[in-house]
């Protein structure tokens, strides 16, 4: 397990524990936690808060044959198997969403050698994979809402330092940043946004509505 330098903020872990994040963010958090023991332990702490609340709840009346009905349900079920950890660069939750590892992604060019693939989108938020060629800048952009960027392969650098596999950057609309992929491998990131990305360069801004970024 690699050392994660940029971890996820507490409020997002707590929101995940409470189950109130849009699915695109759930996906990024679940993928990050798969790569970071520290995030896993912090998440477990927030889940323990939920457990303590559950334990403290006033009991609701249950059906008189509730236990029998549950036993009947169990009789028709198979024990849940442990899902083996994914091989490759996508941890299990992402692999499940994509339907495979990086080679299964249907990339679309977004110019300058960069590629993207929207893997999930609903009214609340969008999750996409982005691949930036090694050494190249991602088009400069800002965004209207929350943006979470998780590195899966390679690394990128911006004003806050270098982000490598497992590192996560959380930015809000205040941040106007220009990530640059580090030399070496192409940088693949999983990004969730709850607002559309807003590109600041003229060309990308014109292209934005057509590219669906």
């Amino acid at each position: 397990m690699q050392t994660i330098r940029h971890n996820i903020p507490d409020n997002l872990l707590m929101s995940y524990a409470a189950g109130v994040l849009p699915q695109a963010f759930d996906l990024v958090v679940a993928t990050h936690v798969s790569l970071s023991d520290d995030a896993r332990a912090r998440l477990a702490g927030f889940e323990a808060v939920g457990g303590a609340m559950l334990d403290d709840m006033d009991e609701a009346p249950i059906a008189s044959d509730s236990l029998e009905q549950t036993m009947a349900r169990i009789a028709g079920m198979k024990p849940t198997r442990r899902t083996p950890p994914a091989q490759g660069i996508f941890p299990e939750p992402l692999r499940r969403m994509v339907g495979g590892d990086a080679d299964a992604v249907k990339w679309r060019s977004i110019g300058l050698g960069a590629r993207q693939s929207v893997i999930y989108s609903d009214g609340d938020a969008t999750a996409r994979l982005i691949c930036i060629p090694a050494g190249q800048a991602m088009p400069q952009h800002s965004h209207r809402g929350l943006e979470m960027t998780l590195v899966l392969q390679g690394a990128f650098r911006d004003d806050d330092g270098v982000y490598a596999r497992g590192d996560i950057e959380v930015a809000d609309q205040e941040v106007d940043h220009t990530p640059v992929a580090e030399p070496g491998e192409d940088c693949i990131c999983l990004i969730a946004t709850d607002g559309r990305l807003k590109f600041n360069g003229l060309l990308p801004r014109i292209a934005q509505p057509f590219l669906g970024i």
Binding site: L27, V29, A30, T31, S34, P85, A86, E92
Partner: peptide, 8 residues
């Protein structure tokens, strides 16, 4: 819901 990978 996407859940973290289980530990091996």
């Amino acid at each position: 819901r996407p859940e973290p990978e289980e530990l091996p």
